[in-house]
């Protein structure tokens, strides 16, 4: 990758960079959600709360996470 190429792509996002940032996002998503699942599992293992509460908080957490991250991802995308 040349100097010229990277400076240009900062504005117009070449497909390569877009792909790399999408890949990075997926990895971060997987990591964060993985930790959330692990946390809930350990929490429910120690408390013995019912099954519906587990899945409710699991999906609620995912929804909130997507809403929250879509905010700052979307704004950064609008900038470009």
């Amino acid at each position: 990758m040349t100097e010229d190429h990277t400076t240009r792509s900062a504005r117009s996002r070449s497909p390569l960079v877009a792909l790399a940032s999408a890949g990075g996002r997926i990895i971060v998503d997987a990591l964060v959600i993985g930790l959330w699942v692990l946390f809930l599992t350990l929490l429910f293992l120690s408390t013995g709360w019912p099954r519906w509460a587990f899945y409710l908080s699991l999906l609620l957490g995912v929804g909130l996470y997507v809403q929250f991250t879509a905010g700052w991802l979307g704004s950064s995308e609008r900038e470009s």
Binding site: D29, G34, L58, V66
Partner: peptide, 10 residues
């Protein structure tokens, strides 16, 4: 996708 991943992981 993330929800499915979370349930699968669980």
């Amino acid at each position: 996708a993330t929800g499915g991943y979370a349930v699968g992981m669980a």
